[in-house]
Simulated assay, not measured.
Amino acid sequence: MIVFDLQCTGGQHRFEGWFASSRDYAQQQERGLVTCPVCGSDDVVKAVMAPAVGRKGNQAPAMPTAAPAQSAAPGGAAAPKTAPAAPPPLPPEAVAMLRAVALAQAEAIKSSTWVGDSFAQDARAMHYGDKDVAPIHGQATPEEARDLLDEGIAIAPLLIPVAPPGEVN
């Protein structure tokens, strides 16, 4: 299962959606099955969300320095803690911009070939004429990317992360 933060573009309502996989979300989105539970709009997009990163297995949980005082509810029970406030929704302009960037990148990748870790070698071979020039995308270390740029080889980072083929939910 995968959880996405979703947002309708009309009313700017944010909500969670649970899907079997990223592909399942895309298929439901294409069929108009993903709708806002508040206003019913089917114009829904993925909202920007912070990753849930757990602590390492070899790290101990942080110990609180001082316990905050809790007010007692009637009957001597501790009052329930309040949930943290949800982040404010993104402005419509930001949502539109992120959507446009994601669509432009997706279109560019359709005509590009995934070369994985051999990106630097393939880009260099094309630049020096050892290989036919073709659009490619893959992975390079920061050092490899700097070396390519120093050699005058035009490269650009992808603005939105791309999962290698076969590694998508």
Rank of each mutant, 00 (worst) to 15 (best):
F4C: 00
D5R: 08
Q7V: 04
Q7C: 02
Q7S: 05
C8A: 11
Q12S: 15
H13S: 10
R14M: 13
R14C: 11
F15H: 07
E16A: 02
G17D: 06
W18Y: 00
W18E: 00
F19E: 06
F19A: 06
A20V: 11
A20D: 07
S22W: 01
R23H: 07
D24Y: 00
A26Q: 07
Q27K: 13
Q28A: 05
E30Y: 08
E30C: 07
R31A: 15
R31D: 12
R31W: 04
R31E: 13
G32Q: 09
G32D: 09
L33P: 02
L33V: 09
P37N: 12
P37S: 09
G40W: 08
S41V: 09
D42P: 00
D43R: 15
D43M: 07
D43V: 10
D43P: 05
V45E: 03
A50H: 08
P51R: 02
A52P: 03
G54K: 02
R55K: 14
R55C: 09
R55N: 14
Q59I: 05
Q59M: 13
Q59F: 13
A62S: 10
M63G: 04
M63T: 13
P64A: 11
P64K: 10
T65H: 13
A66S: 09
A66E: 12
A69C: 10
A73D: 13
G75I: 12
G75Q: 13
G76Y: 11
A77H: 14
A78I: 12
A78H: 06
A79V: 08
P80L: 08
A83F: 14
A83T: 15
P89R: 05
P89I: 06
P89Q: 11
L90C: 05
L90S: 08
E93F: 02
M97A: 11
L98V: 00
L98I: 03
R99D: 08
R99G: 02
V101N: 00
V101L: 06
A102H: 07
A102E: 11
L103W: 01
A104I: 01
Q105S: 03
I109S: 06
S111K: 15
S112R: 02
S112E: 04
T113N: 11
W114T: 01
W114Y: 15
G116M: 07
D117S: 14
S118T: 15
S118Y: 11
S118W: 10
F119I: 08
D122G: 00
A125Y: 14
G129M: 07
K131N: 13
V133S: 14
V133E: 15
I136Q: 05
I136N: 01
I136V: 09
I136Y: 03
Q139P: 08
A140D: 05
T141C: 04
T141E: 04
P142S: 12
E143F: 06
E144I: 05
A145S: 11
R146W: 10
L148K: 08
L149V: 11
E151W: 09
A154T: 11
A154L: 09
I155R: 04
A156T: 12
P157A: 12
L159K: 08
L159Y: 06
P164W: 00
P164T: 00
P165G: 10
G166C: 12
E167T: 14
V168N: 01
